[in-house]
Amino acid sequence: MRIARPSYRYALLAVVVAGVAFPFSRIASAACVVAAVGVVYFHRDPARVVPPQGVVSPADGEVTVVREEEDGLRLGIYMSGWDVHVNRAPMDGVVERVEHVPGANRLAFTKDAEENERLRFEFEDYTVEQIAGTFARRTYSYVDPGDEVARGQRIGHISFGSRFDVVFPPEYDPEDLTVDVGHRLYAGETVIAPQRSAVTDDGERPVAAST
């Protein structure tokens, strides 16, 4: 099973502690082994089938925010501890900037998370953000400024519960979305909005992919 890089070290640490603890407490050693298995499961990185068209979800999880802002339409996705935490590009683009923004570490599913620490990926006309939570304080980027990424490509991951936001290009509005608050999404597979070229002359829009 593929797991997110560089998360092997978390599992390895638990295995090492299990070995050290074994002569003194088999229960503690077993608990460390269970923790190692849990870390591997949490950081799993399954393959995804990217649909032929449409803006795809950048993260697994539940939609918790749909809001129009000065910079554009924002869609926020809460990733629970059971979700895959590898993040993907919702659209093709060239990375212009990867910026760490310091902040708080409040619960990712609350409104207070708006002030949390984050890693911001800026593309030519849209932005995505890994937002840390109370326990998720490690964000990882797989891309650098100047990199060209494809829709659905892995761009990073975040460890141990968090939120992921996408700020759409300025021409998008809430009516363009094919998902809403409470909907369940899968990174790289669920269509969250049509690509502009996919909107027909009569205003019809593609239905979100079923996953």
Score class of each variant (00 low, 15 high):
V101A: 11
E70V: 03
E204A: 09
F164M: 14
A113D: 08
V179S: 00
P174G: 04
R118S: 15
Y140H: 11
I155N: 03
A11K: 08
V16K: 05
L107V: 10
H157C: 13
P6G: 13
L107Q: 10
I3A: 09
G188C: 07
S210H: 06
V40R: 12
F22H: 08
R97H: 12
Y8E: 15
E171Q: 13
S210R: 12
A150Y: 09
T134K: 12
Y140F: 08
G93A: 10
A136F: 06
Y8M: 12
D71F: 04
Y8R: 12
S7Y: 13
V199L: 06
R67V: 03
E171S: 13
V34F: 14
F109K: 12
R48D: 03
R196Y: 05
R67W: 02
D71W: 03
Y78E: 00
Y8N: 13
P58Q: 02
I155R: 02
G19D: 04
S210G: 06
V49S: 13
R137C: 04
E117T: 14
T200L: 10
V56G: 01
G19R: 05
C32S: 15
S80V: 00
I77F: 02
L107A: 13
Q53P: 00
G93V: 09
R2T: 07
F42D: 04
G161M: 09
R137D: 09
D60I: 02
P6S: 09
R205S: 06
D83S: 02
A35N: 13
V49N: 13
P46N: 07
T127L: 14
D71V: 06
A30F: 14
F135A: 12
V191P: 01
S210Y: 05
V66P: 00
S29Q: 07
E148Y: 06
R184V: 03
L185N: 01
G188K: 02
Q130D: 08
R205H: 05
A150W: 07
A21L: 15
V56N: 01
G146F: 12
S7M: 15
H157D: 08
A4R: 03
G182P: 04
V95H: 07
D144N: 12
V50N: 07
P169F: 09
T178M: 07
V181F: 04
R44S: 13
V128Q: 08
V86L: 01
R48Q: 10
H183S: 14
P145Y: 10
P46I: 11
R137F: 08
R205W: 03
V98N: 05
G19I: 06
R67Q: 09
A113T: 07
H157A: 09
V166Q: 07
A14G: 04
A208Y: 03
